[in-house]
């Protein structure tokens, strides 16, 4: 199959949907001729024009609310925030308006909007341009939260997000933009709430998100050389969460390591660990559940410190080895 980059896959999903649905439009800072902070929308204003590729002032509060208002009245806006850290400025519209309108209004009105935004560290952009705040969004009833880790998933999940009648926060990892993968040319949809087993295994389950899926797969390769057979599960969406796939995997392997790039304390890993601990999989556990996440620090600038703040392949390998080699 054809291979394209994650960034191209996102752009293709956007363009194909915009060709098919007049109600879909994009708004965001510098998404016009500049092509967006990371180049995702490059070339799109030439095809779709400035009406549908709306370059906005630097006003996250206004553009997020404009997305909500236009979604409530029949459009399907796709809002780009340059860095997911800026969600803090858009948060009122996300948390207090978009997420709650339908419920507060007693089931009236829909907010079919997608907020796309690059997250994660590894670019040396330091503390205000490198965070992984997905657990914030996942904590708010009414929002859906998506974190694709591959080009193929990005395209299919984005189509599903645009088609969804609810506000969806779509986190693109900035280090993944240049990675390539097999991506079908035609439009397709990957349902939200369906995890993907990126690698099958029998000795331990790693549930990992976004960039950590790739680190976990790398760790799994190293571990297979040592005779340890690891299963890597990518939830792909945090809300809705595919409990069944994760629970079934842990029942099979008896061990669970959760890995994410967000700060470990209060991160989604705690929720995933609890879901498993409260499930029937608990009886199958041969070792206590472990979690890996970022240190409890703002993301530092220095590359050595930055790298040290997030889970590494080595840490994943070490943890799985300890968990598997443990003799009771």
């Amino acid at each position: 199959m054809r291979e394209i980059t994650y960034l191209e896959a996102v752009r293709e999903a956007l363009s194909q949907e915009m060709r098919n649905n007049e109600d879909v439009y994009m708004l965001g800072e510098d998404i016009g001729v500049y092509g967006g902070a990371f180049g995702v929308s490059r070339g799109m204003i030439e095809e779709f024009g400035p009406e549908r590729i709306r370059n906005t002032p630097i006003s996250e509060a206004a553009i997020s609310g404009t997305a909500v208002g236009s979604a409530l009245t029949g459009m399907r806006p796709i809002l780009e925030l340059q860095f997911s850290d800026f969600i803090t400025i858009a948060m009122d519209n996300l948390a207090n308006q978009a997420a709650k309108i339908r419920y507060m209004y007693g089931g009236k009105g829909t907010i079919p909007m997608v907020l796309r935004t690059p997250s994660g560290s590894g670019t040396g952009a330091a503390a205000q341009h490198s965070q992984s705040l997905e657990a914030w969004a996942a904590h708010i009833p009414g929002l859906k939260v998506v974190q694709p880790s591959t080009a193929g998933d990005a395209k299919g999940l984005l189509k599903a997000a645009i088609d969804d009648s609810n506000p969806v926060v779509f986190y693109e990892h900035k280090l993944l933009y240049k990675t390539s993968g097999e991506v079908p040319e035609e439009q397709y949809s990957i349902p939200l709430g369906k995890a993907d087993i990126k690698q099958e295994g029998t000795d331990a389950t790693i549930v990992a998100t976004a960039m950590m899926v790739h680190k976990s797969l790398e760790a799994a390769n190293l571990l297979s050389e040592k005779g340890i057979d690891v299963e890597v599960v990518d939830p792909r969406t945090l809300v809705p969460f595919d409990t069944e796939t994760v629970v079934e995997s842990v029942k099979k392997t008896g061990r669970l390591l959760v890995v994410h790039e967000a700060v470990k304390f209060g991160g989604i890993g705690g929720e995933i660990a609890s879901i498993v601990a409260e499930s029937e999989a608990f009886d199958y556990l041969d070792y206590p559940i472990r979690r890996l996440g970022a240190a409890f620090v703002p993301v530092p600038y220095n590359p050595v410190l930055e790298k040290a703040s997030v889970p590494s392949v080595e840490e994943i390998v070490e943890n799985i080895q300890e968990m598997v080699n443990y003799q009771s």
Binding site: A61, A62, I63, S64, G65, T66, A67, V68, G69, S70, A71, L72, T73, G74, M75, P77, D92, N93, N96, Q97
Partner: peptide
């Protein structure tokens, strides 16, 4: 809370 929502509804129009 209504300012930008109103702008969005006007954008739809």
């Amino acid at each position: 809370g209504g300012f930008a929502i109103a702008a969005g509804a006007a954008l739809t129009s």
